[in-house]
């Protein structure tokens, strides 16, 4: 991703960023027990949204005490979506760059930064046992 960015291949850098974000969103989805048979970006986002809206008192037992983490992840996902808004499509439960989209260096760096923070928060909060698959 970073090499693509350095070589001014911003769309390619965004492709890598999306792949990273998507793979780990699925991982997060498993942790929060997404029930949607179609595992993917939107399924995780919806479930996270639902959990956060329900509040910490309604959290399922396996997620007890993890409300702050979930709230943080919810915010980080929304930050990513905000960073790439109108440039990346996630309607089909997958992330896809909208054809003919141009990424300026600033936008690309913003998206890469948002993905990096999302990943760092996951490193902090996702139990390591979740990462065995």
């Amino acid at each position: 991703m970073n090499k693509c960015f350095a070589l001014i291949r911003y769309t390619a850098a965004m492709f890598h960023a999306m792949q990273i974000a998507e793979a780990e969103a699925i991982e997060l989805g498993e942790y929060i027990a997404v029930t949607d048979p179609k595992r993917g970006w939107d399924a995780t986002r919806r479930k996270l949204d639902e959990l956060v809206k329900q509040g910490h008192l309604e959290l399922p037992a396996p997620l007890a005490g993890k409300f702050e983490f979930l709230e943080q992840m919810h915010r980080e996902i929304e930050t990513m979506v905000f960073a790439w808004r109108i440039r990346i499509d996630h309607a089909a439960n997958r992330l896809a760059i909208i054809p003919n989209t141009d990424f300026t260096p600033d936008i690309a760096e913003h998206i890469m930064g948002a993905v990096r923070i999302f990943m760092l928060r996951l490193v902090e909060g996702l139990p390591t046992t979740q990462l065995t698959s």
Binding site: H16, Q19, I20, R116, M119
Partner: peptide, 28 residues
Amino acid sequence: AGRTFCDDPSKNWQMVIKRFGRSLEMSK
């Protein structure tokens, strides 16, 4: 400005790579 991204592409990503190396491999 791009040199550090090329010379050290894992800069600031070490923690993520250590934990989620698999997804970073997938992205390649």
